[in-house]
């Protein structure tokens, strides 16, 4: 499985879902695609389609309405897949901890592999997080 693993590490396709964040992390994810950070160097492409994606990037805290959308998206992604939470509010709820409609972190809805703290997380931190997720793919092979 050597070559397959290598290809998996070299070509992670992202699916980005805004799960009720303030847009801060979302635009940082987009900024990571643009000339100054250019994550396409690692073969990362932002796919709009859960069926093509390997890595699900979620921003923001889950709420009662979009948790269904989130788990639906997660189920549509074929294995092997990884979930990365970007931003403090997606990790624990952060500044939205006492908002009435917020469930808390994304890990209350779907299993999460990597947590990226920061409000909003820097593109560098997002790159670090994706690399961390890819290392876990490399280590487990699936």
């Amino acid at each position: 499985m050597g070559i397959m693993n290598r290809a998996r590490i070299k070509s992670p396709w992202l699916l980005h879902f805004d799960c009720g964040s303030c847009n801060g992390c979302d635009i940082e994810i987009l900024a990571a695609l643009t000339p100054f950070y250019d994550v396409e160097r690692f073969g990362i492409v932002n796919m709009g389609n859960p069926k093509h994606a390997d890595v699900l990037l979620v921003t923001g805290p889950a709420n009662h309405r979009n948790q269904r959308v989130l788990s639906n998206l997660y189920e549509q992604m074929p294995e092997p897949r990884r979930v990365i939470v970007v931003g403090t509010c997606g990790c624990t709820g952060g500044v939205f901890h006492n908002c009435p409609n917020v469930l808390g972190g994304i890990d209350r809805v779907i299993p999460v592999d990597v947590y990226i703290p920061g409000c909003a997380a820097r593109p560098e931190a997002i790159i670090d997080g994706v690399v961390l997720a890819l290392e876990s793919i490399g280590a487990h092979g699936k």
Partner: peptide
């Protein structure tokens, strides 16, 4: 709508 609703106005009364 309703996918991003967090209830910030209510939270602003609690903070």
């Amino acid at each position: 709508i309703g996918y991003v609703h967090r209830g910030i106005e209510k939270a602003a009364e609690l903070n």
